[in-house]
């Protein structure tokens, strides 16, 4: 049985339909990531789950209880906001204690829980400073600690890492995953970053224009995209329409093909093959991305950045091949 269930949820703002008849089930202890382009309705959906926005219709069930009209404080949730929403006049420790004080817990218990949480997120030395002197990453950890200290049944994240630079984002992702492993909370994480979704999520719900295009594990969504939109958004696939397939590979197909960049192999002739010209070679850290052109169609090819690999010059003609099992046929 799922821990969070969204049933037939709909929301409109004036004439704009944000989402309609949305269903989603999140099992207990799972980090579900809502991923989609800006304006697809993912933040509004998160706010509906949080109780900060009322749905027009449908139900929100948390731990089996209907929470559709319950105020946020009765839902047993925690939330990490996009811009953290830390209280600037309170110290880090006071920010963490704020929620516990509302529960009228004894001072000693509050002090102990704050200390334990500061220890957990590695901010013990920053307990007495105010948020304005913290770095972006530290603020994010305070925001996370402030949500976690309430021991919520469900933790919501509204693009919490969008304002951070890549290096800090990577570190925080790892820290978030560690905390989730240790504490086992159920999470709903909103992001527009596909890579972040694949790394953090146990379950991924790809959203576009107010509907779910695909819900599944990261591997399912990445390896078996349900349609063109998911393929283009999540996997950075090469998506070829039937006329392009005919031009590039000389094969007829009624469905579009989705091919991962890493499935395109240069200098091999096993599977479907073609001759391509190299347009550009870019280094993406451990990956080398080669942009190819075949019969007016551009393809991306990713290969491991091996130190012993021979770099092929731009403009060179090469043969490329794709194994048939690496081609995903898309009907939609």
């Amino acid at each position: 049985m799922s821990f969070v269930t969204l049933q037939k949820l709909s929301k409109r703002f004036g004439d704009a339909n944000i989402f309609a008849d949305i269903d989603l089930a999140i099992p207990r202890g799972v980090m579900c990531v809502l991923v989609g382009p800006s304006g697809c309705g993912k933040t509004t959906l998160l706010r509906v789950v949080a109780g900060l926005t009322d749905p027009d219709s449908g139900r929100v069930l948390i731990d089996g209880q209907d929470m559709t009209r319950a105020p946020p404080q009765r839902r047993g949730i925690g939330m990490v906001f996009q811009h953290y929403a830390l209280f600037p006049n309170l110290t880090v420790a006071q920010n963490l204690a704020f929620g516990l004080q509302q529960l009228k817990l004894p001072r000693e218990e509050i002090r102990n829980r704050v200390r334990a949480m500061l220890d957990l997120v590695g901010l013990m030395e920053r307990a007495t400073v105010r948020p304005r002197v913290l770095s972006g990453g530290q603020r994010q950890r305070v925001a996370l600690a402030r949500a976690l200290i309430m021991e919520p049944k469900l933790l919501l994240f509204d693009e919490p890492m969008s304002a951070l630079d890549a290096q800090i984002r990577k570190r925080l992702r790892e820290e978030l995953m560690r905390l989730q492993r240790e504490l086992g909370f159920t999470g709903l994480f909103v992001t527009h970053d596909q890579e972040e979704a694949l790394v953090i999520g146990d379950q991924i719900a790809v959203m576009q224009e107010g509907r779910f295009l695909q819900v599944g594990t990261p591997l399912e969504v990445y390896n078996r995209p349900a349609n063109r939109a998911v393929a283009r958004f999540i996997g950075d696939f090469n998506v070829l329409e039937p006329p392009e397939i005919s031009r590039v590979f000389g094969q007829e197909s009624s469905a579009a093909w989705a091919i991962h960049p890493e499935a395109v192999r240069i200098g091999m002739d096993e599977g479907v093959t073609a001759r391509a010209r190299i347009l550009a070679v870019r280094l993406l850290g451990s990956i080398v991305r080669t942009e190819l052109q075949v019969a007016g169609v551009q393809l991306k090819c990713d290969a491991l950045n091996r130190p012993d690999a021979v770099q092929i010059a731009v403009g060179t003609e090469v043969s490329i091949s794709i194994l048939p099992q690496n081609i995903r046929h898309l009907k939609d």
Partner: peptide, 9 residues
């Protein structure tokens, strides 16, 4: 205000 509401304030 929203953060406060979620924290029970």
């Amino acid at each position: 205000l929203e953060a406060g509401r979620i924290l029970g304030a």
